[in-house]
């Protein structure tokens, strides 16, 4: 799966809806490309033995939606509902702010008939390919721990991947899950930390220091791997080498850049929140296309 294509779709979604959370989504684009490329074993979405994926940092869901669309589990019409509602979408189309229009985008009635509902900032399990609704930080790892435990009770080889942010490790609930997963040696549980060193109101080193991240997880009994979070091949190969039948639970500390791929967004907290102007959008599109 192409991370460039994911980034292009993120920019289109954000611009169409005139919303932010762009930097968070760009940060995980390569991790998502690895997972939905050669990692997740999902033959059918209704297969109970499929791998599970929990996007615990739900605010980055544009990257997930892009992958689900590229897997053809979400339709284009549904993708275009991101952060839209009938009123907002009509305004966007009327004002010419909508960079990607289609017959469906113009007709809100069509959207509602086609999908029944709209994609929000945070993923909801009622959409195809979304296993669990997330958004409130610190919930996903607990759910993933339960999902991994369920597989072990059944003797099933399915795996559970939970993508959390580094700042999310501020939430104490994560460490409850970390202890339980290690206690039961849930080797089929793979956490991935999007370590972009940035959070909603500052840099992690300034807000609540998380260092040393590796030693923390090792001390709790996890098998720790540090990877370049923008190297799809390295992420994929690291996961494929994990022993997921009997071992400790695994964590990939994925070093990432917030806003990766759009230089003016990189490591800028502003892009946790802000939508793009038309000029910024064009600049971002060109940057992503050139693979900067």
């Amino acid at each position: 799966m192409s991370p460039i294509r994911i980034r292009q779709l993120i920019l289109q979604m954000a611009k169409r809806a005139d919303v932010g959370h762009i930097g968070s989504a760009l940060s995980i684009a390569d991790i998502i490309a690895a997972l939905y490329g050669d990692v997740l074993r999902i033959v059918h979405l209704d297969d109970p033995n499929r791998d599970r994926f929990v996007l615990s940092k739900g605010r980055a869901a544009m990257a997930l939606y892009a992958a689900l669309y590229l897997k053809e589990w979400l339709t284009k019409e549904t993708l275009e509902t991101y952060c839209m509602d009938p009123v907002a979408s009509e305004k966007a189309v009327a004002s010419g702010q909508c960079p990607v229009t289609s017959e469906a985008a113009v007709s809100t009635d069509h959207w509602q008939q086609a999908t029944g509902h709209y994609l929000g900032v945070h993923p909801e399990h009622t959409f195809p390919g979304v296993d669990f609704s997330t958004g409130s930080l610190g919930h996903g790892l607990a759910i993933g721990t339960g999902a991994a435990l369920a597989a072990r009770l059944e003797g099933c080889s399915r795996r559970v991947f939970v993508l959390i942010s580094d700042a999310e490790c501020n939430e104490g609930s994560n460490w409850e899950s970390v202890m339980l997963a290690a206690h039961h040696r849930l080797a089929n549980l793979i956490a991935i930390i999007d370590l972009n060193s940035q959070q909603a109101f500052g840099y992690t080193a300034d807000v609540l220091n998380l260092s040393p991240m590796r030693e923390k997880w090792e001390a709790f009994g996890w098998d720790v791997h540090e990877v370049d979070g923008h190297n799809v091949a390295e992420i994929t190969e690291t996961i494929q080498k994990l022993h997921t039948i009997s071992d400790s639970p695994h964590v990939l500390i994925a070093r990432t850049t917030f806003g990766k791929g759009v230089s003016y967004m990189e490591n800028r907290i502003k892009w946790h929140y802000m939508p793009m102007s038309d000029a910024e959008y064009q600049q971002a599109v060109e940057a992503v296309a050139s693979g900067q």
Binding site: A142, A147, A150, L180
Partner: peptide
Amino acid sequence: AEQNMVGVGTGLAEAG
């Protein structure tokens, strides 16, 4: 660890 217990229960219930 009651928060985790509920989260774990959610994951278990989704699996049946």
